[in-house]
């Protein structure tokens, strides 16, 4: 286990959803530090200033904004390899395919219970914090 908590940027325009994600991670006591980015135009700035190693992105950031953010991250040399995990309220095949096509590292449907939030947080930490090597 890392000594330093993993710094995650949560790109989420809905404050309630952000609080639920936060609560999920707190519930499993995962070694992470969450930073909230409430709008698309602050993503790059916060990724850099908060030195985030990974991003959780709400794909339904209002219109196509979420997808645009993903594409912008991939187009930016500094973040082209940054792991981006998409959190979306849509389970449609098209959105899932579009998400991966645009360069998402994983696509997760937003959970419907707090237990599922915790399960997501646990699985996230188990893989991205404990197992995966991140550049």
């Amino acid at each position: 286990m890392s000594v330093e908590p993993m710094r995650i940027l949560v790109i989420e325009d809905d404050p309630i959803d952000f609080s639920l994600v936060k609560k999920g991670f707190e519930g499993v006591d995962a070694p992470v530090e969450l930073f909230h980015c409430p709008s698309a135009d602050r993503v790059v700035e916060l990724l850099e200033s908060r030195a985030c190693k990974i991003a959780l992105l709400d794909l339904s950031l209002g219109g196509d904004a979420g997808m645009d953010v993903l594409k912008a991250i991939r187009a930016d040399k500094r973040f082209s390899t940054l792991p981006v995990i998409v959190l979306s309220s849509s389970a449609s095949h098209r959105d899932i395919a579009d998400g991966y096509a645009a360069g998402a590292n994983a696509y997760v449907e937003k959970p419907l219970t707090m237990e599922l939030y915790r399960r997501f947080a646990r699985a996230f930490a188990a893989f991205w914090v404990d197992v995966a090597a991140i550049g």
């Binding site: 809905d14 309630i16 959803d17 639920l20 339904s60 309220s89 849509s90 449609s92 937003k110 959970p111 419907l112 219970t113 707090m114 237990e115 939030y117």
Partner: peptide, 17 residues
């Protein structure tokens, strides 16, 4: 899929909580 699903999901999560 979004504007309706978001509050519905919130209801579900908070009820669960």
């Amino acid at each position: 899929s979004h504007d309706l699903k978001a509050p519905l999901r919130h209801i579900s999560v908070f009820a669960d909580m």
